[in-house]
Write a protein that binds this DNA or RNA. Structure first.
Lengths: 259, 259
DNA sequence: GAGAAACTGTATCCGGTGGACACGGTTCTG
DNA sequence: CAGAACCGTGTCCACCGGATACAGTTTCTC
């Protein structure tokens, strides 16, 4: 079914995305065989985005890369939004298999390692496809792969005593941290500092901004001075550890404080 | 070359943004008086973005709103990137005054309330200007107001035993959470569910996606079922509390473990 | 088999975007 | 008063996403 025939869906404008992401696309058997495929188009677009950012992805360029006309793509994809949605879900790929919880008996102590591994895998995906950040702004629908990732994170939290809503909220926080650090890493692509590490470049930018203005931003100046110059790539670890600490404290509190 | 005369800066392409954000714009005294101003242009663009999103901001529309030609704007702003940078910094506005730390003696227990108030103020700004999310993707430079906000958050953390780098990292985490929740709130603008609360709409979308597919995503299905339907607007509070808990645990650990 | 129906890829056209450039009018400085 | 500096504008361009109409190909039905 084409989706919105009669049954009004929650997804108003995004019906095309739902169709293309979740719909089983059965090829009709009347006309000539299609010379392209959703997969080819999506992968070509992803390759363009990987090298030149999401701005390098236009219907014209994707079509040119495939030696086709721009309009021919619209036989496969309803519009650019839908193509981007496909790119996102394809880039995410299959979620990592939940690691065998070695020491996760009944106490559920394995969730922390599992969630950390999950977050690192997601961060790796974002590192491989930096355009995921720009692509995933604004209203959009989740694809099967994305929902699979969410499922993986929630499964890791199954052993904890958290309620369903709390598990969802926890996943939101961790996902947010992954995206935040991806954003920090992407924000350091400034001019000449392109090749350095993310946090080093950021501190360089801060230093240049603070030059002669340290009195206006004393706390920033103090923090930068105290950080000893290059604070390596610590933000990812620090933030993730703090979040996991907070979750662990909460689970322990909920478990032990029920009396 | 305009701008980088000799002294190469860390900000390669973004020299125009640095100039327009930080440069004291002294008006030359040779030609006729300018009929427009940076402020007028920026505020007009912000009004457009507030009502129609960042996509509604184009040079033509801004100029039309001011009854001017598109190209006249380029006398004030080097390009659209710079205009957006101005919009961001103007939208942020003056950072909130650090609240008087009532009970913050030497132990530095007031930082938690201060940081929480700071985060809520930042979230309020994002709520007022949802386009801040889309606007702040990709490489960009911080404006004075933005740096002021960072300074405020770092000042709140001054009492803790955290090192400078750790303070910076903590601010990154909290800022990321603010942005994450703003993103969740913005992602719920889907079709017919526009008027409902953010988390409610998201669970509606999840339910529609899970229809008949609960076996493929068991953990998601379980969490949604357990969340009792409408889990209100809990993600913000839950995540923020977990992050603050994690920070508090860390400071306590660092303070108590120094002996 | 013949024709109709469905499908594919393409050519053309449109409104909109950010921006380069040259130009005439205005204003201040020497 | 002359020239330089500056302002606003008109014109032009490449590119963007997308609608529409059309010719060629395949397959189903009579």
């Amino acid at each position: 079914m084409a989706g919105d025939d009669g049954k009004r869906s929650v997804f108003g404008d995004q019906a095309g995305s739902v169709e293309v992401l979740w719909g089983g696309r059965g090829r009709p058997s009347r006309g000539p065989k299609p010379a392209l495929s959703l997969e080819r188009i999506t992968h070509t677009a992803m390759a363009l985005a990987d090298t030149g950012g999401l701005g390098a992805v236009s219907m014209q360029r994707v079509a040119a890369e495939l030696d086709f006309t721009k309009m021919s793509l619209y036989r496969y994809v309803p519009g650019k939004n839908e193509l981007v949605a496909l790119m996102i879900d394809t880039a995410l790929g299959e979620p990592p298999a939940p690691e065998a919880p070695a020491g996760s008996g009944r106490d559920g102590s394995g969730w922390r390692a599992a969630l950390r591994a999950w977050a690192e895998a997601l961060a790796a995906v974002h590192h491989r496809h930096p355009w995921l950040l720009e692509a995933a702004v604004g209203p959009r629908v989740m694809g099967p792969h994305e929902l699979g990732w969410i499922d993986g994170a929630l499964a890791a939290l199954a052993g904890t005593g958290l309620t369903g809503g709390e598990r969802l909220d926890a996943v939101v926080v961790v996902t947010g941290h992954v995206r935040t650090l991806a954003r920090v890493a992407a924000s350091t692509g400034l001019g000449s500092t392109r090749a350095k590490g993310p946090e080093e470049a950021m501190s360089a930018a801060l230093n240049e901004l603070l030059a002669g203005r340290a009195d206006r931003f004393p706390a920033v100046a103090a923090a930068v001075a105290d950080s000893g110059g290059a604070s390596r790539d610590q933000a990812w670890e620090f933030g993730l550890e703090r979040i996991l600490d907070g979750l662990e404290a909460y689970t322990g509190r909920a478990r032990g404080g029920t009396s």
